[in-house]
Design a protein around this nucleic acid. Structure first.
Lengths: 329, 329
DNA sequence: GTGAAAGCGCTAACAT
DNA sequence: ATGTTAGCGCTTTCAC
């Protein structure tokens, strides 16, 4: 019963005889011995910890991503330390806290646009970082192709025979909001349809970047009171789309008869209300994020990688396939 | 520029002159010096970590509780380590992993019924543990009063003038499922109504203890095909209630006209579909859980505390107040 | 294959 | 008010 030997046993060193190995293990169990994590990590210079900095964990999108993260992590001996904010403004604080803890194997940073100062601070930490749902040239990232998603949504509505398609989206301070708008406009132009700014409703709200049920409700009502009515709306987020549907219901409009609606995100509720939308492969993104992070931890010299997932169009009741007239745009 | 002094500065010891304090801080910042967490915690014998073992983090209930937990933690200097399972069977594994990490300040164990062997193993760990959404005499716990909630739901239906109230609940292996049933029966008896086993539908499913949309759908259909129809259903979980509502819709029944429905949990979707239900104060439970844990950490000799929250009835559209006939039961 | 000993970066008691 | 020193519990050369 030595001491270095015990260490060797617990680290599965081959340089220990089967006999003593078993003996040590037995005694350890009898004594309820547990190697001390901090001491290990001090001697090792590794922490077995992955940090996740998440705005609004309470969001279905993040939950699902975290589920993927956890599943991936389960195969390794890494544990997950979660820092959540209640609002984007708090992200910086949580990030600082996470970086202070330092010495984590790596950090997953969710949905946080990186300006140069932020990027520099993070680089300085010297820890591997993977960006989830945002991008920056200096870091590995996992994101989704918002533009092509928005295009797909809009094209779907066009091929449904819709002629006047409105857009309801979030605050243009949000990058996804801008990109989704770009995709919408691109699809219209590709189809030779006019882009009419009067039916593009961009939220001015800062709370949640305007991605709320309320904003959707109000925006749809504005759209309804316009002289030249729309026959479809692409709503850049499902949560807003819920408000849109409520406005339509209260106004007595048929969906998709009078007006078709397509959202974005495929949050959990969407399936229940029959909302057509674009699904992001959230779980897969979580798995991939850890994969990227582990790869980077193993070899920090690897070239930076940007993975972009394609959202997939889910057609439900709010945008049923219309008896399509021959398309003579 | 000493060394112990630096330590003192970072631990805000009063025994250091303002002058050197500032000088140390400056140099530290210039050098990007960060105290090493593992070394601290080794010397300190404290880890600044709280562990949470959660089955199915991806569940709205847990998310909300975790939100409360995180908010409470934000005021302290503790961080949250999350262990999630994908299924109750995995909880043991995750719990073991959590206990192995050991040396956490404390553990929050969610929704995990403790048999004696499990309880003993946990006690052995010697760490403060707070049970959330379960109970055991040997540990502090936070739970909700399922019985009185179920009673409230049933009484609400009775006072609505409903005469024949069915019950749809989960697998009786689940304690909440059993307790909610007991509450339902108690309320009926109190009102002098008969308890009819033929309209009490208990799920046999093991997956999620039968708390799924599918099970709700199937159960309601069975209820619909009985000779003596019900005029109300108390569904012991909102997720099942969603299935119930779908079954009703597909059968062309009016809600609450023909049949009233009350769920339990108040998951996020419930507000959108107008489901009457019982809300658990999830966020508050999270905050309280940390409060209890911190108290216990500070003074392990404190008497064990069991906090029981009352769920509150939320009346929405699926159980509108009927023009109530004079109650002459 | 096993033990002795140095050291990981910090804290805390002690000394000054 | 500051420096010196002995651990905290482990890993890891380096001997044997």
């Amino acid at each position: 019963v030595s001491i270095a030997t015990v260490s060797r046993v617990f680290n599965e060193s081959p340089r220990v005889s089967e006999k003593t190995r078993i003996r040590v293990l037995e005694v350890a169990r009898a004594l309820h011995y547990q190697p001390h994590v901090s001491a290990r990590s001090l001697a090792n210079k590794r922490s077995d910890l992955v940090l996740a900095v998440i705005p609004m964990l309470t969001n279905y999108f993040y939950m699902e991503v975290v589920r993927g993260v956890q599943d991936s992590l389960a195969d390794s001996d890494l544990d997950l330390l979660v820092y959540t904010a209640q609002a984007p403004e708090q992200v910086d604080g949580q990030l600082k806290r996470a970086m202070q803890r330092g010495r984590a194997e790596g950090i997953l940073l969710f949905s946080t646009p990186l300006n140069e100062s932020r990027a520099r601070r993070i680089k300085q930490g010297g820890q591997p970082v993977v960006l989830v749902d945002s991008q920056h040239p200096a870091f590995d990232s996992i994101s989704i192709d918002n533009k092509s998603g928005a295009e797909a949504a809009t094209e779907h509505l066009i091929s449904n025979g819709r002629k006047r398609i409105g857009l309801i989206t979030g605050n243009q301070a949000s990058i996804p909001a801008r990109v989704r708008r770009a995709g919408y406009e691109a699809a219209l132009q590709k189809a030779g349809l006019a882009v009419d700014p009067s039916i593009i409703l961009v939220s001015e709200a800062t709370h949640q970047h305007g991605y709320t049920e309320k904003v959707g409700f109000a925006s749809m009502n504005r759209l309804l009171h316009m002289s030249e009515p729309v026959d479809a709306v692409f709503v850049a987020s499902d949560i807003q789309a819920l408000g849109v549907l409520r406005a339509l219901r209260e106004a007595g409009r048929q969906v998709p008869g009078d007006i078709a609606v397509v959202g974005f995100d495929d949050i959990q509720i969407s399936a229940y209300v029959g909302l057509s939308t674009l699904r992001q492969p959230m779980y897969e993104m979580g798995r991939k994020a850890i994969e990227l992070l582990l790869r980077r931890i193993e070899d920090p010299t690897l070239p930076i990688e940007h993975l972009e997932f394609e959202p997939t169009l889910i057609v439900r009741e709010t945008s049923g396939h219309r008896a399509s007239l021959p398309d003579q745009a």
